[in-house]
């Protein structure tokens, strides 16, 4: 199959998923007690029943269920996720404001986790049952059991309060006279703790997966051939086994993007990172359901898009997959 056709097919697969996400959102919206008209009426303080009815008509809330659903889908198509009556701004605008910070945090954490995790996995497979191997196992045991937000708090105590090395929260120092380079450095310093907090779990996870994948590859014939050719053990490990062992790690990284986003939300609230997580917290405190559902929709779509990218990456990593 040609590349372009493959691309089109993959994109076509995304449509039903997004439609399903929209349906779920619509259902959740109607599960919530009280509709938009009730909420606005409550906020304006004791409105008459006629006014609420009028509002309901203007929102189309008096129409049959299926008409409302079509209306909802139509609005989504025009990228209208509704209005946050608490913050007095369109939901989509509020969310798009916060997406870059969350993406920066997620991508940094993911990059750290992939680099460190793959490295540790390679070392513990090449030094099977060594001290390093055992240490990675212990790390995994502890990290799998640690609540991420709590780890964040403890890291603040250690690196910020006690050692005074890194800022404890926020994304940048409030200052107007910074050069772009100085500003990037400043954001970087603020990024270290949240990214480490979010990434550590995945470092352990990818190290474990890379290790077992490497050990599996070590059992195959072409590794025996490489050894028989008299290649050094480090060359066999790094040049032959490692690239072939990478695929399960990439698969897992792709599958877990949704999980990473969930973790990011908690970690952001710990560090006051101005991303989607902070927005979730604000929405919760103000009971802004419209905004919460918008966040669910956008974050789900983000995951779908990320999965698509990972899917296309497979083809690059392993040409045999693209043929299918």
């Amino acid at each position: 199959m040609s590349g372009a056709l493959l691309l089109i097919r993959r994109f076509a697969q995304v449509v039903p998923v997004v439609l399903a996400i929209a349906t779920l959102n619509f259902v959740l919206l109607h599960l919530a007690p009280g509709d938009a008209a009730d909420i606005i009426a409550a906020q304006s303080g004791g409105s008459s029943a006629e006014f609420v009815e009028e509002l309901r008509r203007s929102f189309g809330l008096d129409r049959p269920f299926w008409q409302q659903f079509l209306f909802y889908l139509g609005r989504l198509l025009m990228l209208d996720l509704g209005f946050s009556h608490v913050q007095q701004r369109p939901v989509l605008e509020l969310i798009l404001d916060r997406v870059p910070a969350t993406l920066l945090l997620m991508l940094t954490a993911m990059a750290i986790a992939l680099a460190l995790g793959v490295l540790l996995g390679i070392v513990s497979a090449m030094r099977y049952r060594s001290v390093v191997d055992a240490l990675v196992s212990v790390l995994a045991l502890v990290v799998y059991a640690t609540p991420q937000f709590w780890l964040g708090l403890m890291l603040i105590v250690l690196f910020s309060t006690t050692l005074g090395l890194l800022p404890s929260g926020g994304m940048e120092t409030i200052a107007t006279d910074m050069s772009p380079a100085a500003r990037a450095l400043d954001i970087g310093r603020h990024l270290v703790l949240p990214a480490a907090t979010l990434g550590l779990f995945y470092v352990a996870l990818y190290a474990r997966v890379m290790r077992s994948s490497m050990l599996e590859v070590y059992g195959t014939d072409f590794i025996k051939t490489a050894r028989a050719k008299g290649l050094s053990e480090s060359r066999v490990g790094l040049n032959h086994a490692a690239p072939n062992a990478l695929l399960p790690v990439v698969t897992l990284a792709g599958v877990q993007i949704g999980h990473l986003l969930g973790g990011s939300i908690l970690v952001e609230t710990v560090y006051g990172w101005p991303g989607l997580g902070r927005l979730v917290l604000d929405a919760l405190l103000q009971r802004d359901l419209n905004l919460l559902l918008g966040i669910l929709f956008v974050s789900s779509v983000l995951v779908v898009v990320a999965n698509l990218i990972v899917d296309l990456l497979y083809g690059v990593l392993d040409p045999r997959i693209a043929q299918r």
């Binding site: 998923v17 399903a20 996400i21 779920l24 959740l28 599960l31 919530a32 007690p33 599958v255 949704g258 999980h259 986003l261 969930g262 973790g263 939300i265 908690l266 979730v280 929405a283 919760l284 009971r287 359901l289 919460l292 559902l293 966040i295 669910l296 974050s299 789900s300 995951v303 779908v304 999965n307």
Partner: peptide, 19 residues
């Protein structure tokens, strides 16, 4: 697969906020 795709923590947050 659909439920595996949506960010589960966000969905849990929304569900509890609603109910």
């Amino acid at each position: 697969d659909f439920f595996l795709t949506i960010p589960s923590f966000v969905l849990a947050v929304v569900l509890i906020a609603i109910f």
